[in-house]
């Protein structure tokens, strides 16, 4: 009798903790591409963010494509690529916008312009 109750309790704790992990999960932009990241990965719940900010129509606002002359191609997008596939960590002749700056400019410029969303380091790189 006592034994059965214990199993139930254990199962309940297990279910609650799994639920808790999922409900507390914060989605972030992967930072493992940076060697020895200095800051906690930036919070960014992709689908939720784009729904709230009404960016679902045009994926190419972020996932853009450029032609050989560095002119943006309006109606193409690159959501199958990571930003790091085109933006190297350091500035090189083939890439004038290093990766960290590509992320920061993309995210912050729009937040400043729309007067919404985080703009200070610790509002994106949140320490827990």
């Amino acid at each position: 009798m006592k034994y059965k109750r214990f199993v139930w309790l254990a199962a309940l704790i297990f279910i609650l903790s799994v639920f808790n992990v999922y409900s507390q999960e914060i989605l972030v932009v992967d930072n493992t591409i940076f060697n020895r990241p200095q800051r906690p990965a930036a919070v960014f719940d992709h689908d939720d963010h784009n729904e709230k900010a009404q960016l679902e129509e045009d994926c190419s606002i972020c996932h853009h494509v450029y032609d050989e002359n560095n002119v943006r191609i309006e109606d193409e997008s690159s959501e199958d690529s990571l930003c790091s596939e085109c933006h190297s960590l350091k500035k090189i002749p083939e890439n004038s916008i290093p990766l960290r700056m590509a992320f920061h400019n993309r995210c912050k410029q729009c937040h400043f312009k729309s007067d919404k969303g985080p703009v200070l380091c610790g509002e994106c790189h949140i320490r827990k």
Partner: peptide
């Protein structure tokens, strides 16, 4: 790092930084 990062974003120019 944070000062150089901000400078880089407005002036496209950066230099070495300390580890945080």
């Amino acid at each position: 790092l944070s000062h150089v990062a901000l400078f880089e974003e407005s002036m496209q120019w950066s230099w070495m930084t300390f580890n945080d």
